[in-house]
């Protein structure tokens, strides 16, 4: 049975005429890494809000169709309990900092305090996560005085520290440089290897292609493609619908136009290099 199951879900925010999500059906399984891409205002963030129960509990509005998390109907689910099961990191790093703590150390500890974790374990986990996210040098700093990128990493660490089974992550690298982005992806990959379920919204499709098991492509509230990463990202027709595809797919297309055929469409750099090597032999 799927962990999260959406059947013909349509959702409209209060006071809005057009639905933000239209007839979405998809099954999310435990332990898998799902990448979500699509143009701006395509419904990616609303999908995250739905998976986290904020839609319809926090934002209200009209929800049609059926959505279940662990077999429980999302309309009647206990969202407070859900916060202990699904970690949510959202876009804006400036409002993700509580603003009430004087050090990054205490900021990361908030979620653990709320989960009732004992003090000794809180300290252990915060130090471990700070090392993992590479923010050890920030631990004693005031979170309100950090840059956007630093705040984003602190917010990320704060939610990861809670060690929930599932993480819904909405553009966690929007303020980060390429090295910082790569590091975050590696952490997310580590989480996946630990058996966590990941739903990650990102524009950096080349990185998603390397790590995600399945991809969902959103466009104007519709799920226009969904399935195994290789299959979805090989579909060039998605370009016309505003989706970005990995550079390797575009490179393959150019090669094809010049009469060079590869064995299959490469969606990752490694795959592309290995196929080119084979072709050159």
């Amino acid at each position: 049975m799927a962990f999260i199951e959406l059947n013909d879900v349509t959702y409209t925010y209060p006071l809005m005429k057009e639905a933000a999500l239209k007839n979405i059906s998809y099954k999310f399984e435990k332990g898998k890494f799902y990448g979500v891409i699509g143009e701006n205002a395509g419904g990616k963030t609303t999908l995250c809000n739905l998976l986290r129960g904020l839609v319809p509990h926090f934002y209200k509005g009209k929800l049609k169709g059926s959505a279940t998390i662990n077999g429980e109907d999302i309309k009647t689910i206990d969202v407070d309990k859900l916060s202990t099961q699904i970690g949510y990191i959202f876009q804006n790093p400036f409002t993700q900092i509580s603003g009430v703590k004087k050090s990054v150390f205490e900021e990361i500890a908030i979620g653990l305090e709320n989960l009732g974790v004992e003090k000794g374990e809180i300290i252990e986990r915060v130090l471990k996560i700070a090392k993992l996210v590479n923010i050890e040098s920030l631990l004693q700093k005031n979170p309100n005085e950090l840059s956007g990128g630093q705040r984003q990493r602190v917010a990320f660490a704060s939610v990861i520290a809670m060690d929930t089974d599932t993480f819904v992550i909405d553009e966690p690298t929007s303020q980060l440089d390429p090295d910082g982005t790569e590091a975050i992806f590696e952490i997310i990959h580590t989480l996946k290897e630990q058996g966590k379920t990941i739903v990650l919204v990102e524009h950096k499709v080349d990185l998603l292609a390397e790590y995600a098991d399945e991809m969902l492509v959103m466009n104007k509230g519709n799920l226009i493609a969904g399935g195994p990463t290789k299959e979805v990202l090989s579909d060039l027709s998605l370009l016309e619908k505003g989706a970005m595809l990995p550079h390797t797919v575009l490179f393959n297309h150019e090669l094809k136009l010049k009469g060079v055929e590869l064995e299959h469409v490469p969606v990752t750099k490694e795959d592309c290099i290995s196929q080119l090597k084979l072709r050159m032999k």
Binding site: R52, L54, F58, D78, V79, D80, K81, S83, T84, G87, Y88, I89, F90, T95, Q96, I97, S98, I110, G111, L112, E113, N114, L115, G116, V117, E118, K119, I122, A155, S158, V159, M162
Partner: peptide, 15 residues
């Protein structure tokens, strides 16, 4: 929402 993401209303005794 950020505080909700940090399990602010989690039905457990806070430390």
């Amino acid at each position: 929402i950020a505080m909700d993401a940090r399990a602010f209303s989690a039905p457990v005794a806070h430390t």
